[in-house]
Write a protein that binds this DNA or RNA. Sequence first.
DNA 1: CAAGGAGTTTAGAATTATTCTAAACACTGC
DNA 2: GCAGTGTTTAGAATAATTCTAAACTCCTTG
Lengths: 135, 135
Amino acid sequence: MPGTSLDFSARLRAAGLRPTRQRVALARLLFAGGHRHVTAEALHAEVKASRMPVSLATVYNSLNQFRDAGLLCEVVVAPGRSYFDTNIGHHHHFFIEPDGELHDFPSDKVTIAGLPAPPKGTRLARVDVIVRVRR
Amino acid sequence: MPGTSLDFSARLRAAGLRPTRQRVALARLLFAGGHRHVTAEALHAEVKASRMPVSLATVYNSLNQFRDAGLLCEVVVAPGRSYFDTNIGHHHHFFIEPDGELHDFPSDKVTIAGLPAPPKGTRLARVDVIVRVRR
DNA sequence: CAAGGAGTTTAGAATTATTCTAAACACTGC
DNA sequence: GCAGTGTTTAGAATAATTCTAAACTCCTTG
Ligand SMILES: [Mn+2]
Ligand SMILES: [Mn+2]
Ligand SMILES: [Zn+2]
Ligand SMILES: [Zn+2]
């Protein structure tokens, strides 16, 4: 029986976050099913429809905390449009331009060769590839 | 003698834009020197310091028009942080995380192999690679 | 080289995404 | 249970950007 509150409590605690009712409710929405790409507003709409509504500020706080704790990552595709991504493995994205849909694709078959060395005094943190497509 | 107003007028006209005083002033700042990565606010500050100040709304309008006309492209690196880029050739970016600096690197030595086919009903528009580095 | 109309600029208001504030609230360890 | 600290919340604030509609200017036409 996956998806009990206890699972999410433990997971949050393991990440150094108190398992409050709000965070557990959000974690369930985010992590119970498969991977998701979700905006703060969309997640707020979802949780508002549940029996345990959560304020928008808490949705933002929680998403930022989850990201900082490594439970999520954030993908910025356009000005004012950022998605929180429950897939934290190495992968890249298709961005479908008119609708704003994001789709994952695995990075293990993608090879990026010939990248120049990072500028002096800097260390590589991450390589983001966004493949923009149109209908 | 590169950089006369006439050059920029012609260039704007060729792009289908009326060469107004404001657009010419902005085009000079953007295109007279080498390639630039500039935010709307930064360009507004620059043009305010000139003998021909331009309103912030016009800076935004012009940057969007220049981008739509293919004179610029826009690079989004973080929520609420987008740069207008006078380099419209194929290239990619280093993003230096704490400072927010953007640096070009040419794409001709970079090979991206193994990209999956675009989702059904879509056509590839552009591939953005952002290499995020930290100090 | 006049109009005159379409396109452009502008100040300021509006919108959107996000963060801040500070008071109320709730986990947690004792 | 209680205290204490961390969390939540409504609402205000901030930041980036767009909208509005009135004033202005480029450019074509006569
Ligand atoms: Mn954020
Ligand atoms: Mn824009
Ligand atoms: Zn993803
Ligand atoms: Zn560039």
